[in-house]
Every structure is written in structure tokens, then in C-alpha cells.
């Protein structure tokens, strides 16, 4: 199953999204939060993200959902630090973090591939709310 990593500047947002998504997840699904810095500040940390990717991977690859700015740069840095085999199987989603995460978790739980999920979550950009 494709693993999911949630990267936010805020640890509370990352943990909160994991909590929200877990309601719709398969019991064996791996969803990891990588929010904030190691010492609890607002920010992002490439090493923390790297560890979350390793935790979320079970061989089928990992999709990363990010909030903004340095979250994207730190996530890219983390991918660069991975060895090539896993590095090739990690994708950053081009999607809003909350809607995208829910779509990703549901799609992953029914066994969609990384490529399919990355494509589906992009659609969540277009969700109309009103």
C-alpha cells in the first residue's frame, strides 16, 4: 500500500490531518506526520520528513502532502537524501493539504498505485465548496 506523509509547518496541523484521515484509512495503512521542527517550533525539518518517509514506506512508495513554502523545499531535500531506490518512489503531491490527504488516504486504502494517487489528489484542487 502506498504510504502517506503529511508535512506542515505546524505539528498540530500535521497530527490533526493524520487523525482526520485515519478515520477513513485501512487498519494497516501507514500515515506519518512530519510537522514543525524537532524542538516544537513552527517550521519544517528535512530530516524529520526523511524519517517519516522511511516509516511510511512498505515498498509501494510514498506520497507527501505539503502545506507551503519551505515545506516543499524541505520535502524535496528529504527526497534527495534518500537512496535512489526509495527516492524514485516518493512523490510530492500538487494538492491542497487537507483535501489532498483525504483523497490520498482513501485511494491508497483501496490499493491504487502511487502514480494513480498522485494524479487523483491533483483533482482535489478543483473541489468547489460553495
Amino acid at each position: 500500500m502506498v504510504g502517506i506523509v503529511i508535512v506542515s509547518h505546524s505539528n498540530k496541523i500535521a497530527e490533526g490531518i493524520v487523525e482526520l484521515c485515519s478515520q477513513m484509512a485501512h487498519k494497516d495503512q501507514k500515515i506519518a506526520a512530519a510537522g514543525g521542527t524537532e524542538d516544537g517550533r513552527i517550521g519544517t525539518d528535512a530530516v524529520k520528513i526523511l524519517n517519516a518517509i522511511k516509516k511510511a514506506d512498505d515498498g509501494d512508495g510514498v506520497l507527501i502532502l505539503v502545506d507551503m513554502g519551505s515545506a516543499i523545499m524541505s520535502a524535496e531535500f528529504a527526497i534527495d537524501l534518500l537512496d535512489n531506490d526509495l527516492g524514485k518512489k516518493v512523490v510530492i503531491a500538487d494538492a491542497p493539504i487537507v483535501e489532498g490527504s483525504i483523497t490520498a488516504v482513501v485511494q491508497a486504502s483501496i490499493g491504487s498505485s502511487l502514480k494513480e494517487i498522485a494524479c487523483d489528489v491533483k483533482e482535489s484542487k478543483n473541489i468547489e465548496k460553495i
Binding site: T37, R41, G43, T44, D45, A46, S70
Partner: peptide, 8 residues
């Protein structure tokens, strides 16, 4: 350790 955009 930096946390912000300046880190990466």
C-alpha cells in the same frame, strides 16, 4: 535546525 525556508 533552522526550520524556515532558509534551512533547505
Amino acid at each position: 535546525t533552522v526550520g524556515g525556508a532558509a534551512g533547505p
